[in-house]
Design a protein around this nucleic acid. Structure first.
Length: 187
DNA sequence: CGACTTTGACCAGCGC
DNA sequence: GCGCTGGTCAAAGTCG
């Protein structure tokens, strides 16, 4: 496993691991004990059953996170795409990520600061969906969080956009590591 | 007092 | 065109 490209690895609360899920894909996935992230994601249509299975297969051993369900992909992500009109065609780079995580927490701390701007009951789901925006000025990244309608022990999180700033958490721990020279020793 | 959450209203896309 | 649904807005309330 390669930890080198992940700034959050300095944070003991984020024991993340960088892996390439699918050799045929350029997307880089970052997996923690509790959740899975995709650094960059190509067009919505590339989120195929095969990529979903690839993710599930790669994280099957020892990780509780699984990729977004296909029902979520088809119903919700398509809706988001439609509403926001971000996608012009399937080739366009779309920084949109969805994943499912087994957790009792309502909102997972991903190191960024979010401001809640909406809550909506979802059809066919007993659990409401929450809408968040990155509270950092000038950053338009959005996040949606809802419990899995089929298994409420899972939380489905979807991100849209790319942060134009570093995670406050990463900045903090980078500074801390600079202040603690002994931790910089690579040996 | 500023930042954040809550919540009802509004708007737009889609299917019929 | 109409109703349904999801996403966003914004005013009011809450909290530190």
């Amino acid at each position: 496993m390669d930890y080198s490209e992940n700034p959050n690895i300095a944070n003991p609360n984020y024991p993340q691991i960088s892996v390439n899920i699918n050799p045929s894909s350029s997307s880089k996935f970052v997996i923690s004990d509790d959740y899975l992230m995709v650094d960059e994601f190509l067009g919505q249509d590339s989120w195929s059953e095969s990529s979903e299975k690839a993710i599930s297969t790669d994280i099957a051993s020892g990780f509780s996170a699984t990729a977004a369900t296909s029902s979520y992909k088809n119903n919700n992500m398509q809706s988001w795409k439609r509403k926001n009109g971000v996608m012009k065609n399937k080739e366009e780079v779309c920084h949109r990520v969805a994943f499912r995580t087994k957790t009792e927490l309502e909102v997972m701390d991903d190191g960024f600061k979010w401001r809640k701007y909406g809550k909506k009951a979802v059809k066919d789901s007993p659990n409401p969906r929450n809408y968040y925006k990155c509270s950092s000025g000038g950053c338009s990244v959005k996040k949606r969080v809802e419990r899995d309608r089929e298994d409420s022990s899972y939380v489905i999180t979807a991100y849209e956009g790319v942060h134009n700033h570093e995670s406050p958490c990463a900045v903090y721990y980078n500074q801390m590591s600079l202040m603690l020279p002994s931790h910089n020793a690579s040996t």
